[in-house]
Design a protein around this nucleic acid. Structure first.
Lengths: 87, 87
DNA sequence: ATTTTTTGTTGTATATTTACAATATTTTAT
DNA sequence: ATAAAATATTGTAAATATACAACAAAAAAT
């Protein structure tokens, strides 16, 4: 099965926590270059690795990974604010 | 990275929809034997395949796949009923 | 009861993910 | 400005996921 390219927010989430790829890599138990590949979306993680990343960030997989290109978080926030504010 | 064994509810969910492995396989675009391997938990799906399965069932990945052995759905229901009923 | 469909099993081949190393480039700290 | 740390790039090797085939066993349908 030709795998679709998946998108992710690993780089941004990692930046927000102020940790390096090396540190994240150690936590989730992979080589630090593997984190690089994932952030550059050069390949998709295994489901197990996706779970580890999801566990570390404390976020559901769907919020980190997506089959659709991901909008910047700031835009998501604005959209949500508009939705709520409009009540 | 040695991948952890993951657990899933594909077989039960598929039974509930009354479709065969062959049919599910066609829908998600894999060989029907691959569905067999997944149901028997002989290997983990790729993240992309997990997304496809999640899309077909209309359920989040976390409800289908887990790093912990999964309880039968019926038990989950009982636990939820107890939680709510106890209010 | 027998045919058909579904599922399980085993084996081999290919594709994708991950590890690892070496070096270049960029960013950050001093 | 220079040193140190972080990231990018490239290539090779290993592990895991997927495809596919052939056949056995079990379940469902007739």
């Amino acid at each position: 099965m030709k795998s679709r390219k998946l998108y992710n927010r690993i780089a941004v989430l990692r930046k927000e926590r102020n940790i390096s790829r090396k540190e994240l890599a150690e936590i989730i138990g992979v080589n630090f270059q593997t984190v690089g590949y994932l952030e550059r979306e050069e390949y998709n993680p295994s489901l197990d690795l996706a779970f580890k990343i999801s566990e570390y960030f404390g976020l559901p997989i769907e919020l980190i990974f997506s089959t659709e290109p991901l909008k910047p978080l700031i835009e998501e926030i604005i959209e949500l604010k508009n939705k709520i504010g409009g009540q």
